[in-house]
Design a protein around this nucleic acid. Structure first.
Lengths: 160, 160
DNA sequence: GTATCCACTGGACAATATGTTCAGCGATAC
DNA sequence: GTATCGCTGAACATATTGTCCAGTGGATAC
């Protein structure tokens, strides 16, 4: 487990210029094409790189409001609540966390008013005891991975 | 703003099989290659598709522990705290939320013990008044976008 | 010290996809 | 009725991919 400096440079390069090809990467990194190809294959079968799916912006889809809801679940109802939340398209992400029957989910909505509808749908389920919602106002650090990759690769100098 | 059914099918197809090419997509969707190409270009300049960066799994990188920290910030220190948190690689994401000077951030760590080090580094900053951390135990719904895209495209039947 | 393994190199090849352009066509707007 | 728009289907040169291969160097085992 873990990645070396070359792996790190590949991931960072890919993160900065996703449309780049294997051939161009090998040119930029100064290694043979086969090497990059082999590294990429390994990173993917390792599970380090899970995929290259499109990063879709919910705001551009018409859902500019993001919120986080903390849910308190009645004992033993966890599985049912999970199944319920999975059916709500506006639930982008769901985690169970420490704390007795607590969950945290990320929601989006078309507007603040629409958020009320989403929350009603989310919490309108028997197993949910209590819900607290925090609306996101700003996102100073969007989901990122490059700094962590650089740290994991043990080579802060690959910030090219 | 908004997407139609064809846009939705393109995004869903791309999400399911990211390595697919434009040509193969046009074959699958039964439209001309130029159409797919034009739609993709538009989706990207629209900002609907932000990019195709690699989805890296922090766990495979050696950071299997995820946590969410709620931070309470001293009035007027917001900018400083944001800048501070941006320098911590283990901070994957940061939001400012409703509530007086509240922030929510996603953290990863190498272990529960390591999480303590990360939290110390995060909160070891003047502007932070109080911090509450919830450790993620399970992730029943990983970050997803397909259901929302299908809803936005107004075509639930494109679940092919 | 020698054999063995492994990753990387640099090259080759056929097959495929890409970027780009074009004329034609149907629906819609005015 | 005419202009505009998006889509089709085709063409072309170019670039990239997947897949081989033999050779080289370093590390490891014995």
């Amino acid at each position: 487990m873990g990645i070396d400096a070359l792996d790190g440079r590949i991931i960072v390069l890919l993160a900065r210029e996703p449309r780049i090809g294997v051939l161009e990467m090998s040119r930029r990194l100064g290694v043979a094409r086969g090497t990059v190809q082999a590294r990429l294959d390994r990173l993917q079968s390792n599970g380090v790189i899970r995929g290259f799916g499109p990063q879709v912006d919910p705001a551009a889809l018409g859902y500019p409001v993001t919120a986080f809801a903390t849910l308190q679940i009645r004992q033993g109802q966890g599985a049912d609540v999970r199944a319920h939340l999975a059916t709500v398209p506006e639930v982008l992400e769901l985690h169970t966390t420490t704390g007795s029957g607590d969950m945290l989910c990320r929601l989006v909505a078309r507007s603040n008013a629409d958020l009320q509808r989403v929350i009603d749908r989310v919490v309108g389920f028997d197993g949910i005891v209590r819900a607290a919602t925090a609306i996101v106002m700003e996102n100073p650090v969007p989901l990122r991975i490059i700094p962590l990759v650089e740290q994991a690769a043990g080579d802060p100098a690959l910030r090219e």
